[in-house]
Every structure is written in C-alpha cells, then in structure tokens.
C-alpha cells in the first residue's frame, strides 16, 4: 500500500468505532501486534526525546529501504507507534520525508490527544523523518 492508501485505511479502521472505548481497545490491540523490539537496542541511545513515556526507535537501511524497530512501555503509546510503523516502516527515505504532516488530524487522533501526548507523537514523527533524512544524505554522498 502507498502511504496515502495506508493513511486512508487507518482512518477507515478508526472511523468504524463510535465510542472511545472501542477506539482505544483497537489502538491497544494494534500495539500488541507490533513486531518484538530487539533487546540489544533497548538503550537510551534509541529513546525518542519529548515523549512522556519511554519510546524506543531503532533504524536500519537495507537496499534503499528504511526499516524501523519501535517500542513503548505504555500500551496506548505502543498502539500509536504501531500506527506510525504502518505508515513509515519499510519505505524509502524520500517516501518517509513525503508523509503529510496533517495525517494525525486526518486520523482524528488530535481530538483525543492532549497537547503533551500530541507533542510526543510529533516528536516521534520528527525522529522518523530525521533518520530518513540522515539515510538520504549519506546515500546521496556515497
């Protein structure tokens, strides 16, 4: 799926829940399906700054595509991370850098996130883009 298709798909999934309980249950369930985070990368080096709960993000590059491992100690945050992974993971740096920044409101998430949580989410998005940019720059120079 393209990034646009993935965002539309996620939005559709979330829209089917009319009450907050089901929506959160869905987000938590997504987190539970997140690929297991490699323990060797569970260090402060891979912590995302600006999140209230600890979020780890580890990037790697393989054949022009960026792969992320990610995890959070908080269930709902982990679910949000899982959503981000669907959008950002296994994409080229250019694709990652083209993710529209308003997708959070397109998913209707902003209405349910306090400013602190929203800041955490944008900190994660910034970090994903920074890794992509770093790979793009190093790829262009090599």
């Amino acid at each position: 799926m393209t990034i646009a298709e993935t965002i539309a798909d996620l939005a559709e999934q979330l829209e089917q829940f009319s009450d907050w309980e089901d929506r959160y249950a869905h987000i938590i369930a997504m987190g539970k399906h997140l690929q297991q985070y490699p323990e060797e990368f569970r260090s402060d080096d891979f912590l995302v700054r600006g999140c209230q709960s600890r979020v780890w993000l580890h990037p790697s590059m393989d054949q022009g595509v960026v792969h992320f491992d990610a995890d959070s100690e908080a269930l709902i945050v982990k679910g949000l991370v899982a959503m981000l992974m669907k959008i950002y993971n296994h994409r080229t740096p250019d694709e990652i850098l083209s993710v529209p920044s308003d997708f959070v409101s397109r998913l209707g998430l902003d209405a349910h996130l306090s400013q602190n949580r929203a800041n955490g989410l944008s900190a994660m998005m910034k970090q994903l883009a920074l890794y992509a940019l770093a790979y793009k720059v190093s790829g262009a120079s090599s």
Partner: peptide, 20 residues
C-alpha cells in the same frame, strides 16, 4: 499499568489527573 495510559483513559472519561 503505565501512568501515561491510565491518565489518557481517565481523561477520556472526563477525569483530570496528573501523571508523571
């Protein structure tokens, strides 16, 4: 139960607490 999760779910139910 992580405090961040708890705070969010209490907030959804109108209950303002502080976590952190």
């Amino acid at each position: 139960v992580h405090g961040t999760d708890l705070g969010m779910l209490l907030d959804e139910q109108g209950v303002a607490t502080r976590t952190g």
